[in-house]
């Protein structure tokens, strides 16, 4: 399930120890903004050991490395890739060429380590105007790119506008990212909602992101995770409909029917796929489904 991804500072052992029990579907172990330049090496070792020893069975593991214009990113990858995180998040990706630089380096590491190609996936963090404009090119640059995150804070700085709770200033960017990712067949995560104490605002923001087509939403606070999960989870009505769809499809197969309809609407492959996704998500949430 990919509803919530949670940023965790890579230099805080106490938080790393419990990173995967906070309910987030993915945890982003951060080597970039959360860590001062003087502590980069310590955080890198800490995050490496956390993945190695803690296993993180309950969440996907995403490591945000330092940006490609720093001296740190290759060392980050050298230390982290051998421990097979699910994703490497690369910040400040503005062009397909950018992400291909990271892809090439990881490919070499994977070859050296004897890993199957694309074992470690990429999640570019798009947070510049140029990145938004190039979103589809980035999303489809390499099969290693399997998800994308929109970073609203840096983006609005680049756009020279104010970041607001309403988020009108990033409406175009959000839509553009969703369309690019869906066109490329990858997942897309929305920017974090940064007011930790405004649960109502968070839910509104997450609902809006969901309505645009985002897969899920990132968060900087463990307190936001449950609400994000709730917003991006299928509703009981979704689940009931999916169960009906699967039942009709089963019946059609048994009767050898090619085309079936439910309440006057033809049930085709996309609807079945959607039903399967809904039921998988529901099961992962612990909802009991009698099939």
């Amino acid at each position: 399930m990919r509803r919530s991804i949670l940023f965790m500072p890579g230099n805080n052992p106490g938080m790393l120890l419990n990173a995967d029990i906070l309910g987030a579907d993915g945890i982003i172990l951060d080597l970039e903004d959360a860590v001062s330049p003087k502590e980069k090496d310590a955080a890198r070792i800490l995050v490496r050991n956390a993945i190695k020893y803690l296993g993180y069975r309950k969440s996907e593991v995403i490591v945000r490395i330092n940006s490609l214009d720093t001296e740190f990113w290759t060392k980050d990858l050298d230390e982290i890739v051998p421990f097979k995180p699910d994703f490497i998040m690369v910040p400040k990706i503005s062009t397909a060429a950018d992400i291909l630089v990271a892809d090439e380096y990881i490919t070499k590491l994977e070859e050296k380590l004897g890993f199957e190609k694309n074992t470690v996936k990429l999640m570019p963090l798009v947070e510049t105007a140029l990145g938004v404009e190039n979103a589809y090119a980035i999303a489809s640059a390499t099969p290693r790119v399997r998800a994308m995150l929109l970073g609203g804070e840096d983006l609005t700085a680049d756009l020279r506008c104010k970041r607001t709770k309403e988020g009108n200033e990033i409406f175009y960017s959000r839509s553009r990212i969703v369309v690019a990712c869906r066109a490329a067949g990858i997942d897309c995560y929305d920017t974090p909602f940064t007011d930790v104490n405004d649960a109502e605002g968070l839910i509104k923001d997450a609902e809006f992101a969901k309505s645009l087509g985002f897969t899920g939403k990132s968060s900087i606070s463990p307190r936001h995770v449950a609400d994000i999960n709730a917003v991006f989870s299928p509703t009981q009505a979704d689940i009931d409909y999916a169960i009906e769809v699967m039942a009709i499809i089963k019946e059609a197969k048994e009767k050898g029917l090619g085309v079936v309809a439910l309440r006057g609407k033809m049930i085709d492959a996309p609807i079945v796929n959607r039903a399967v996704q809904v039921l998988e998500a529901a099961k992962a949430m612990g909802v009991k489904i009698d099939e």
């Binding site: 419990n18 029990i21 906070l22 309910g23 463990p222 307190r223 449950a226």
Partner: peptide, 9 residues
């Protein structure tokens, strides 16, 4: 504490 809140939940 987020860990305490998880346990409490």
């Amino acid at each position: 504490d987020p860990v305490g809140l998880v346990m409490a939940q």
